[in-house]
């Protein structure tokens, strides 16, 4: 008996799981780097987040939705877990990490219907929930000196800038880390954001495997760079240099891994560029004028909400009437 099905009879080799695994591989350099810098606490934090994310997805699927086919096989919950932990300081208590995972998976992902149906990036929702619930714990960063923690607490570069502006100091008066330190990760911050280098390596891997397209990362970083550059050129004493902006505060992590999340980003190339520019501009505005020192999470979440609107932009159509 022959099988008959309508064309096409050919399907590409990629599948959801492979794409998700590509992202995990791309996250690996940053993972290793943060374990090297922060030590065992980073590993514990990551494992907690991953295990609790996967568990919550499994539990909700099994006991709440009564699905027989648990979607955990597609590895997307692991990514959410890793990304969530990347956004947290290494000193955060374990139970907070678990609550963050529950919010990320339970509220941001599964309540919308699971993979592909969520409007907001789950990891970011988890992070922002923790940030507004436990602001003190979420902004306590251990100081990093010569690629290891020394036990004391310190502020992130963007935190320093915010403080100085509040207290009326000039940027030239405060001690900011060099761009070199930021690129190689010799600064304080959350688990995944500290090394620009490791994140860029991951990003290049994603681009090479065609897991993501260049549109979102380039437009996010480009618009941030340009806007920050203009502001820096006008008032260098209160506006940080554009390089500092794109190398700090999770800009790289957000641009490469968070904003490019499939479900929460637009479908068309033009839409992706608009989305990216929106994130870049909002980030700089929040960083400069908002209450929080870093604005990537909020910028991405705000733009996530506009995605359905951006999706109304039609791609260029062959043979459309002009």
């Amino acid at each position: 008996m022959l099988t008959v099905s309508p064309s096409p009879h050919y399907q590409s080799d990629t599948n959801t799981r492979k794409l998700m695994c590509n992202v995990l591989i791309a996250l690996l350099p940053a993972c290793i780097f943060s374990i090297v810098v922060f030590g065992i606490s980073a590993l514990i934090s990551m494992l907690t987040a991953v295990i609790s994310c996967v568990f919550f997805e499994f539990a909700i699927n099994k006991w709440l939705f009564k699905n027989e086919d648990y979607s955990i096989k597609d590895c997307s919950a692991i990514i959410t877990g890793v990304l969530l932990s990347f956004n947290l300081p290494n000193t955060l208590p374990i139970w907070m990490v678990i609550i963050g995972s529950l919010v990320a998976i339970g509220i941001a992902k599964m309540s919308f219907g699971g993979l592909g149906c969520n409007i907001f990036n789950p990891a970011l929702v988890g992070r922002v929930f923790l940030l507004v619930s436990f602001p003190a714990d979420m902004t306590t960063w251990t100081k990093v000196q010569d690629y290891s923690v020394d036990g004391t607490t310190g502020a992130t570069p963007l935190g320093l800038i915010k403080e100085s502006i509040k207290s009326g100091k000039m940027l030239t008066d405060i001690d900011l880390p060099t761009v070199q330190d930021m690129v190689f990760g010799n600064i304080g911050g959350s688990l995944g954001e500290i090394s620009v280098m490791a994140l860029v390596i991951g990003g290049i891997y994603l681009l090479c495997t065609r897991t993501i397209t260049w549109h979102i990362p380039v437009s996010v970083l480009g618009s941030m760079f340009i806007l920050a550059g203009i502001m820096h050129a006008v008032h260098p004493e209160i506006n940080a240099s554009p390089l500092l902006h794109i190398c700090s505060g999770g800009a790289m992590l957000g641009a490469i891994f968070m904003a490019t999340d499939y479900s929460t980003s637009p479908m068309t190339s033009l839409g992706k560029i608009i989305f990216g520019i929106g994130i870049g501009v909002l980030t700089i505005i929040i960083r400069r004028f908002g209450a929080y020192p870093e604005g990537m999470s909020f910028a991405i979440l705000i733009m996530n909400a506009i995605v359905p609107l951006i999706n109304k932009i039609k791609p260029h159509r062959y043979g459309a009437k002009k």
Partner: peptide, 22 residues
Amino acid sequence: PKTINFEGISSCAFAASQISGD
């Protein structure tokens, strides 16, 4: 008895437009 194994979406209208039946 079935003569072919049809793979496609669960829609009679679609199947009817593609094949004479399984």
